[in-house]
Design a protein around this nucleic acid. Sequence first.
DNA 1: TGCTGACCTGCTCAGATGAGCAGAGGGCGC
DNA 2: GCGCCCTCTGCTCATCTGAGCAGGTCAGCA
Lengths: 343, 343
Amino acid sequence: MVSTESAAANELLAVRAAELYYEEHKTQDEIGAILRVTRWKVGRLLAQARERGIIRIEIVHPRARRLALERDLCSRFGLRDAIVVPAPLDEVELQARVAEAAADYLVSMRPVPRLLGVSWGRTLHQVAEALPVGWSTGVNVVQINGGVSLSKRPGTAASTAVMIAQKAGGQATLLPSPAILERLETKKAIEGDRTVGGVVQMARGAAAYLFSAGVADTTSVHVDSGYLTADDIVALVARGAVGDVIGRYITADGTIADPELDARTLGLSLEELRSAATSILVIGGEAKHPIARAIVTHGLCSVIVTEEHTARALLDEADGDAGAAPATDPDRHHDIPAGGPPS
Amino acid sequence: MVSTESAAANELLAVRAAELYYEEHKTQDEIGAILRVTRWKVGRLLAQARERGIIRIEIVHPRARRLALERDLCSRFGLRDAIVVPAPLDEVELQARVAEAAADYLVSMRPVPRLLGVSWGRTLHQVAEALPVGWSTGVNVVQINGGVSLSKRPGTAASTAVMIAQKAGGQATLLPSPAILERLETKKAIEGDRTVGGVVQMARGAAAYLFSAGVADTTSVHVDSGYLTADDIVALVARGAVGDVIGRYITADGTIADPELDARTLGLSLEELRSAATSILVIGGEAKHPIARAIVTHGLCSVIVTEEHTARALLDEADGDAGAAPATDPDRHHDIPAGGPPS
DNA sequence: TGCTGACCTGCTCAGATGAGCAGAGGGCGC
DNA sequence: GCGCCCTCTGCTCATCTGAGCAGGTCAGCA
């Protein structure tokens, strides 16, 4: 190298080449003629410019995704798939985008699950709404945890499952039981009921699970719905609970926060969720970082749908304890069909 | 078209294709395999994405340029060349960037001018400083307007010309005279002096002129240097002066603001500047928009070096009276060598 | 029902591009 | 001073990509 002078001249040349290539749409050959260098040199200058970040290419679209983060999440946590959308500043918008992304993911899932197990909550309701009518053909839906009121007013557990099923021309099977029972005996009795027991059994056979997670605080839907009191939440937090998955409160270690409470919680067990072939977590927002981390680091989901802040938060922690692979593994294959079924 | 549905699906598909192409560096063929479409469709999707602005390509570099604005300036004002740099927020930085760009332009000028006529001022001094040592070989420099103090302390008219010449291994010829004389007789006498007259004569033969422009206000170097008083400036503004070019105050119409004062101003005339083959204006900053407009719309420069705000301000005015051509003329050829002489 | 025109699709083919290679040049240690 | 080694250069060749074209599809309309 002839000292810094030539390096600087090269950089300037690279900037000029980049302008002519990306803004003026000239061919590398033409640029070579203008800058008096060979076209091969122009190619190298452009490669340099890209490497050094002189050229910034950005995809500005609400449905854009962060594939690099997705890849990192997959390899770090051993996930089968990850969907990461750019995070808008507005929290409401953010939740909508994540829900939309989850809907996109469902639409493009292959093979199409014949039976889909779903949880319920605000997030999943948004996913249901984001699904286009006819998003699939003949997908049946089964609820995987209790919490239904049989009325179908919007926002309830029932309406979520029903909407997802209806939009795919399938049948919804609801779990007609509270999420958490006050007494263990009641829970066992309800569970023993043929209807309820049958639904749970059916849920165990679902080809895929779609669920979100709640934060362990008083804004929880469990408090709204009256299954838990504010005091219960305080007690759970004292035991280290960070949030709930399909109604079960867990700690950062991925273990049940309160076994007694858990025994009174009706629906799929954590172990059943963990051993599922396809379990899709839909989660977004600052508040949910701890519960997201608990789920993801302890293998409770095989697919995550989230936004970039959460993704970064998950990746930023130095410990990648759950089957960690090098975060830069480039060979991971991604199959991301985008639109509806391509006929 | 199958209604909006297909259009939306296409857009989503375009976003996915863009991500895979620009972020994951896959070939269109590979993308086709992933998205289950043919590679030609992928090509079309990418073209759509670029058209609709889904893909934003930006060149982030202090030396980047705004070629589209340059082209517009050239065609609108019939310039031979225009250099427009992105405007940093900081005014000081902005002046430095413009000066740097002017230096780049000088370095890459072809043919190399054997004799370069230069004006003086803060801007040109920065240009001189931005020039690399050995920026050319054997370029001689001549001052085109008065204002020299024979001492060579930095910042004076003399040091600018000398620095430009020295750095190109050439000789500087200074114009040993005040910029503006108090009495017409004195001006005529000095002009008649063999030395001074010879220098002016030499200036008339320069292959190119390099100059900036001043604003008609009390921050002017003419006030600093004592050639004009604050009152003189007030009077000039009252006559419609917007600023000065090579020491001569002009109005927005491009005419001399005060002929009597002008007669006492020593150096190249406005007409001589206007009829020059190559006259390079270096100018930047909000305050200078009016004088820049006056110069550019009245053919006083053939090349402009500026920043994007000024460029936009010049273009925003609906009247393109000076030999205007359609602003979108795509055939205009630009020759913009970038680095040093490519040997 | 059949026609029309607009649009979309997949194709051919030529031009544009990137990978990889051999040779040139220049710094640096022996 | 000499040779070694590293880097940069210009090249060949295979691949990738975009322009343009012919055929297919579909809504609108008589």
